[in-house]
Design a protein around this nucleic acid. Structure first.
Length: 448
DNA sequence: TCTGGGGTCCTAGGACCC
DNA sequence: TCTGGGGTCCTAGGACCC
């Protein structure tokens, strides 16, 4: 935690709805709801006029319509939101080289990294107000709320206290007492499930939380969340402002107007999703090894199935093939309301790097030295380090096998000696099996 | 009035290796 | 014949955030 309130949290007010009102003057001063407008839609953002009728984010659009039938219901124009967000973020970068966007409408700004010093409450409030004016001008009239404090936690909570168009600076040294009277749910990371567990332990406010020992909190919530919450409750937060956070996964999902049960229809939808995921991977110069299919049943229970490839891919055909297989393995009886396809275990090198010319592969083969005791056939009949398995992701040496799985070592140009990956032997990815030497007569080579 | 779409992080168990 | 513990990878599910 810092000695000066040098972290700002900037939060644009009713962002999506505000952009719509900016671009369409007839909507100004009127209730506007942006979100899913179909039968199963939910509200993303409600303008302040719509909030007067009880319309809230994450509420079903059906309920919003019943509460506020005369509002304008809009599906959203994300290109416009992205462009506006970029203009706003640029204003923050003018103020400091170190900003951390959390979403299109939120970011931390590090004033310390801007070389500013002697930051007392008055000075920070003035800086915040200037920033809000700059944002207003650059965005075509949008307002923001700003919180400032000695840590991310305090800045984030403060920005929420005087919305819209507020500025709240929490004086250094007053953090714990600032938090104490608040509900535990103001602490980021404490959602409904955690709040309920805490309630059962007699904890409703941060002050209640401050009474608990670390041991007790860890018992209630586990090591990670317990220790985190223990620190945050006493305003002990030294998390740094971090600019470029790397993408960990890319996914597409869709909720259908009515539940779908036809496997052929779903397979075709999965193909389209695989293509869109692939496009986004390629645009971001990323590829990934794990393909995940997500299904949501009529009763809202959600399942995921995933499969990890030998090497990263951004190929729509491969993603689609794996997604189809995972979908086939999924239970869709009774119909599903949602289908999703995603790719994770991302790498910033692309698929082509996995395929290398045979010359390089041979050079690598020479370099491979195996311990003597491994130069024997394993349980599934492979010679580890000598047999080669051909997969659609490239060729790799068998590194060991048994119990229905085979471990394959891949050689890649960029990352020799390459990843070691495990496949189920029945995995269709193992299209062909080429032993370097013929298996002995009694050897039952694992079925491909 | 039933519950979006895009993410992140954590946990837990099993397989496998040393 | 039984008994280990640590570490990594993978899978599945859940909580949470905007």
């Amino acid at each position: 935690m810092r000695s000066e309130p040098s972290i700002l949290h900037v939060d644009l007010d009713a962002f999506f709805a505000a952009v719509e009102q900016r671009d369409k003057p007839s909507l100004r001063g009127k209730p506007v709801v942006v979100g899913g407008i179909g039968l199963r839609g939910v509200v993303s953002t409600a303008s302040y006029e719509a909030r007067k009728y009880g319309v809230r984010s994450a509420m079903s659009t059906a309920e919003a319509r019943s509460r506020c039938p005369h509002a304008a219901y809009l599906g959203g124009r994300f290109d416009a939101y992205r462009a506006t967000s970029a203009a706003v973020m640029a204003q923050m970068r003018e103020l400091s080289p170190l900003i951390e966007p959390l979403s299109l409408d939120e970011a931390f700004v590090d004033l310390e990294a801007a070389g500013l010093s002697g930051l007392d409450v008055t000075k920070v409030a003035a800086i915040a107000d200037q920033l809000k004016e700059a944002i207003h001008a650059a965005s075509g009239g949008l307002t923001a709320s700003v919180g400032a404090g000695t840590s991310k936690l305090i800045a984030k909570i403060a920005s929420d206290l005087d919305k819209p168009n507020g500025t709240v600076v929490v004086p250094p040294g007053t953090e714990a007492e600032f938090l104490a009277p608040m509900q535990v749910t103001v602490v980021p990371g404490v959602g409904p499930a955690t709040a309920q567990r805490l309630t059962m332990a007699g904890v409703r406010t941060v002050a209640d939380l401050q009474q608990l020992s670390l041991d007790e909190l860890v018992r209630q919530l586990g090591t990670s969340q317990g220790t985190n919450l223990y620190r945050l409750a006493t305003a002990d937060d030294s998390r740094a402002v971090v600019s470029d956070r790397e993408t960990k996964s890319i996914s597409i999902e869709d909720t259908f107007e009515t539940d779908l049960i036809d496997r052929a229809v779903l397979a075709a939808i999965a193909d389209g999703m695989a293509r869109r995921v692939s496009e986004r991977l390629q645009k971001a110069q990323l590829s990934g090894r794990t393909v995940t299919v997500k299904t949501r049943m009529h009763d809202f229970t959600t399942h995921t199935r995933s499969s990890t490839l030998a090497g990263p891919t951004d190929d729509p055909r491969i993603i689609a093939r794996v997604a189809r297989r995972l979908l086939e393995e999924s239970d869709i009886s009774g119909g599903i309301r949602l289908l999703g396809v995603g790719v994770s275990s991302l790498a910033d090198w692309i698929q082509d790097d996995l395929f290398i010319d045979s010359e390089a592969a041979e050079a690598e083969e020479v370099a491979v030295e195996l311990p003597e005791q491994r130069r024997t056939r394993d349980r599934a009949g492979y010679y580890p380090g000598q047999d080669v398995i051909h997969t659609e992701y490239g060729e790799g040496w068998v590194w060991g096998s048994g119990r229905g799985r085979v471990t394959v070592r891949f050689e890649t140009a960029r990352t020799p000696p390459g990843p070691v990956r495990t496949f189920a032997i029945e995995d269709p990815a193992l299209a062909v099996h080429y032993p370097h030497r013929p298996p002995e007569e009694d050897t039952d080579v694992a079925a491909g």
